[in-house]
């Protein structure tokens, strides 16, 4: 009787251990598949990018091979950037302009420079160094439009206030300072054509909202990748331009640009 009971327990333990083993194997295989697909994404994206944008009919000069000359390539990129800016200048809304060779970021309206700031650090995805020159030239030669921006500071720091009942209550309504100037600022701007710009201020203070924003935006990217995987597609991969600048400049720029702003980039 006892041995039968012991045998049942033993077999249950074996079953339980086997289940754990199978579960671990299945989870590991899924994780490996996700990892492989996610690491394959930049290659696939680069390949697609080179096919879609390396269209020689989009260029204004005779031979695309000329772009292999570094000096000529730089000149043509500068020319395309200025053309982009002129195109955006026809608009009445404030636009963002990122000039990476000059390490500057500025906001403009109707071609008038409103604010400019020096970029203290620039780091780009490897994608830009491995992409075809012609494709990159075509990609950056027209302005981008922002799709979405995420930040740990408010776009409009609205303070809600109920009308006071009398003069005594009104006297208590003192001036409240905008506290967003005290924390480290993180701004993630997602553009059309799959480009992301991440702007951070150059102080080394870590705050909970800063960490939370980085964490949630990383998680969001991963979620979108997973969504693609479960739809049997190669996960999306957005190349990123990361820049650091003065905190006050970053706040001014972020609050100045509208939700659907034009962005010109000199790569």
């Amino acid at each position: 009787m006892v041995s039968k009971f012991e045998n049942t327990i033993q077999s249950n333990i074996v079953k339980y251990r086997n289940a754990i083993k199978y579960f671990t194997v299945v989870v590991t295989v899924i994780l490996l598949m996700i990892a492989v697909l996610m690491l394959y994404a930049p290659f696939s994206n680069l390949q697609k990018f080179n096919i879609v944008y390396a269209d020689s009919s989009l260029i204004s000069f005779d031979k695309e091979e000329l772009l292999n000359d570094e000096k000529f390539y730089e000149l043509k990129k500068h020319e395309a950037y200025l053309k982009s800016k002129l195109l955006v200048a026809k608009n009445d809304s404030i636009s963002l302009s990122v000039n990476l060779p000059d390490s500057t970021i500025s906001i403009e309206v109707q071609g008038v420079l409103l604010h400019q700031s020096k970029l203290t650090s620039i780091s780009n995805s490897m994608f830009f160094e491995r992409a075809n020159h012609l494709a990159l030239f075509n990609y950056f030669q027209s302005p981008f439009k922002t799709k979405k921006s995420i930040s740990n500071i408010e776009k409009e720091p609205v303070i809600y206030m109920k009308a006071p009942k009398d003069t005594i209550e009104a006297a208590k309504n003192l001036f409240k300072a905008d506290t967003s100037l005290a924390k480290r600022v993180y701004v993630r701007v997602e553009l059309e054509r799959g480009l992301t710009i991440i702007l951070t201020d150059n102080q080394n203070k870590w705050s909970s909202s800063y960490l939370y924003t980085i964490f949630s935006s990383g998680l969001l990217s991963f979620k979108l990748s997973l969504k693609d995987i479960f739809h049997f597609q190669v996960p999306r991969y957005n190349p990123v331009i990361r820049v650091k600048l003065n905190r006050n400049d970053l706040i001014s720029i972020y609050r100045a640009i509208p939700d659907k702003a034009y962005v010109t980039i000199h790569m």
């Binding site: 690491l39 290659f43 160094e129 990383g218």
Partner: peptide, 9 residues
């Protein structure tokens, strides 16, 4: 993964 993804190229 996200870190490696950006540098794997």
């Amino acid at each position: 993964l996200l870190l490696i993804q950006d540098k794997i190229l």
